[in-house]
C-alpha cells in the first residue's frame, strides 16, 4: 500500500509562451492505505496529465506531490497507460520481464500467472504486433499487476475492450485489490464503472479543478444488479450533468 499526497498542484504546459495552457489548477487530495480512488471527468480535463505527474514522467509547475510506500520505503509503482506501450521488438513475456526487478523462477512464475489471468497464457512468445489492440492492452494490464505494486495507477484500462472481457477484468481487479493491499488510482470517464469499483470518486472539471470528491460507501463485492449500486450510479451521473450545465465549455468538449 502507498501514501499519495497531492497538495495545491498546478500544471501549465508551455508556461510563459503564447500557447500557455493551464491543465491542472490547485489540485489537493490524498489517498492512503487500501483505497480505490477513481478520477472521472470529461476528455481533456487533465486526467492523464495528473497520472503522469504522479508517476514522475511529467513535471509539475507548482505545488507538491509525494508517493511513498506506507512503511516509508520508496513506493513500487504499476502504471497501466491509456495505450498498451509495449516494446514491439520483444515478445509478450519479455515485455513483462522488462519492468521486473529480478529475473528468477519466482518472477517468471508470477509473470505467467498474470498473463494467464488476462487470458493470454498461450501468447507469451508472440510479438506485440501479432496481437489485437485489446490483447495488447491486456498485456499492459498484466504487466502492471505483475510488479505487485504498492500504488497501481490505471488510465482508462478497459475502455478499448469488449464489454464481457472488461467485466471479467474488472472483477479480477477487485479481487486483486481486495487480496493484495494496494492503493489504486483509476482514471475513467465511465461513471458506472467508477461507482462499481471505487471507495471514492474525484471529479475533475475542464480547466483541471476538483469539482467534487465523492465517497462511495457501499458494501463489497458490488453487483450491477444491486439496486443500491444503481441508485448511486444515477445520483453521481446527475451530479455530473449539473457540472456540465454549469460549465458551458464541457458541453462542447464531451
Amino acid at each position: 500500500m502507498a501514501v499519495l499526497t497531492v497538495n495545491d498542484l498546478c500544471k501549465t504546459f508551455g508556461a510563459g509562451t503564447a500557447r500557455s495552457n493551464r491543465v491542472l489548477d490547485h489540485i489537493s487530495f490524498d489517498v492512503r492505505g487500501q483505497t480505490f480512488v477513481s478520477i472521472v471527468g470529461p476528455s481533456g480535463c487533465g486526467k492523464s496529465t495528473l497520472l503522469n505527474i504522479i508517476s514522475g514522467v511529467e513535471t509539475h509547475t507548482s505545488g507538491a506531490i509525494s508517493v511513498t510506500s506506507d512503511d516509508g520505503r520508496p513506493a513500487r509503482l504499476g502504471y497501466v497507460f491509456q495505450d498498451p506501450r509495449l516494446l514491439p521488438w520483444r515478445t509478450v513475456r519479455k515485455n513483462m520481464m522488462y519492468v521486473q526487478d529480478k529475473d528468477d523462477e519466482v518472477t517468471r512464475g508470477r509473470v505467467d500467472r498474470y498473463l494467464d489471468m488476462v487470458g493470454l497464457g498461450k501468447h507469451g512468445d508472440f510479438w506485440p504486433g501479432q496481437l489485437s489492440g485489446g490483447m495488447q492492452q491486456r498485456v499492459g494490464i498484466a504487466r502492471a499487476f505483475a510488479v505487485e505494486p504498492d500504488l497501481l495507477i490505471m488510465d482508462e484500462p478497459f475502455s478499448h475492450l469488449d464489454a464481457i472481457t472488461a467485466r471479467g477484468l474488472r472483477a479480477q481487479l477487485q479481487d486483486i485489490w481486495a487480496q493484495s493491499k494496494k492503493t489504486v488510482v483509476f482514471v475513467t470517464h465511465d461513471v458506472v464503472e467508477a461507482v462499481e469499483l471505487s471507495d471514492r470518486i474525484i471529479v475533475l472539471q475542464p480547466g483541471g479543478r476538483i469539482y467534487e470528491d465523492i465517497t462511495i460507501d457501499l458494501p463489497r463485492p458490488r453487483r450491477q444488479s444491486d439496486p443500491a449500486v444503481a441508485t448511486l450510479q444515477a445520483e453521481v451521473l446527475a451530479r455530473l450533468e449539473k457540472m456540465k450545465a454549469m460549465t458551458p465549455q464541457v458541453a462542447a468538449s464531451v
Partner: peptide, 24 residues
C-alpha cells in the same frame, strides 16, 4: 511513450539501453 513507460517502472539504465534504445 516507451521512454516514459520505462522510467515510470524504474527500469535500470543498462536494461533500457539493451531492450529499448539498441533495438530501436
Amino acid at each position: 511513450d516507451l521512454r516514459d513507460m520505462s522510467s515510470s517502472y524504474g527500469v535500470p539504465l543498462g536494461r533500457r539501453v539493451r531492450d529499448l534504445v539498441l533495438p530501436a
